[in-house]
Design a protein around this nucleic acid. Structure first.
Length: 286
DNA sequence: CGGCAAACCTGCGAGC
DNA sequence: TGCTCGCAGGTTTGCC
């Protein structure tokens, strides 16, 4: 699934396609995805103009003129497709279709149905169940070195799964967790209570890899595609993700893969040498 | 409360 | 060619 850069890419495309346009008609072709659609989903959307499309964490949000907000999540395999109306037959896994007033249609397609779409009110959006527990945006000033260092001191498990906890910081998923840790030379299995110096380099690495991925239009793997149907190309810049057994670009050591909390983690055993308890005690930054 | 496995689904590539 | 198996970008739930 799309992580923050992919959702950001989709949101930018949707905003340019939908902002200021009116949704003429809304249709749902399946009663539920991860959660059931609200019973009045289509009626509350149809006929309304779109104020803007924005992102929070990995959610996209379509702001309608009457204060209703469509909250959506792409899950693992969700796509938002913008195409000319009636130019294509309904495809397998097309779950939602919005007909726009400019002759286009916006289609939500999600094979694995881990995605969701529901309605909220703009006034109380931040208090919504899905959003209220989310951590800071990684590209905002709220995600600071002090913040991360302080929060990580409370954690006992390995740093990589902790980075994927959306209550700590949003938008970092399985790919970018591995990529960020490689960039700052931290072993994914290292206990999460990093020293302040490491926390600082990690903040910078997370920002850098997410910004670079956004600049490349996100990553396209398997069934993920950009809103426009074009392909993001950041996957060609992965340093470790999906490169098990291939030489590290920095030192030629074969990239390793391990499983952490059920997810694959990729890292360079040399560049991200694990820090033993003893050597960490000796480390100057403890 | 923290941490982890399992569950939610379908599709695809690898290997036999 | 055709089957089975393992794996896939996320989040929630439930169990220790």
């Amino acid at each position: 699934m799309p992580e923050l850069p992919e959702v950001e890419t989709v949101v930018r495309g949707l905003d340019s396609s939908m902002r200021g346009r009116r949704i003429i008609r809304a249709e749902v072709f399946r009663p539920n995805l991860r959660v059931p659609f609200p019973p009045d989903f289509c009626e509350r959307i149809a006929g309304q103009a779109v104020n803007k499309v924005a992102r929070r964490a990995k959610y996209f949000m379509v702001y309608l003129e009457d204060g209703t907000v469509v909250i959506g999540h792409l899950g693992m395999s969700g796509r938002m497709i913008v195409r000319p109306q009636d130019a294509y037959p309904l495809a397998r896994h097309d779950h939602v279709r919005w007909q726009m007033d400019d002759g286009k249609e916006v289609v939500f397609n999600d094979a694995r149905r881990f995605g969701l779409m529901l309605l909220a009110d703009a006034d109380t959006l931040e208090q919504h169940d899905l959003l209220v527990h989310l951590g800071p945006e990684p590209l905002s000033n709220h995600f600071s070195e002090d913040y991360l260092a302080t929060e990580l001191l409370k954690k006992k498990s390995a740093i990589k799964p902790v980075l994927m906890d959306q209550r700590l910081v949003v938008g970092v998923g399985n790919i970018y967790a591995s990529e960020a840790l490689f960039r700052c030379g931290i072993h994914p299995g290292q206990p999460a209570h990093l020293c302040a110096e490491q926390a600082g380099t990690l903040v910078a690495a997370i920002r850098a890899v997410l910004e670079a991925a956004i600049a490349s239009g996100g990553s396209t793997l398997r069934d993920y595609a950009r809103e426009s149907g074009e392909m993001g190309y950041f996957q060609h810049q992965f340093q470790v993700y999906g490169r098990e057994g291939k030489p590290c670009y920095a030192c030629a050591t074969p990239v390793a893969r391990i499983t952490q909390t059920g997810r694959s983690t990729f890292f360079c055993p040399s560049c991200q040498a694990s820090i033993t308890r003893r050597s960490r005690k000796r480390a100057a930054c403890g």
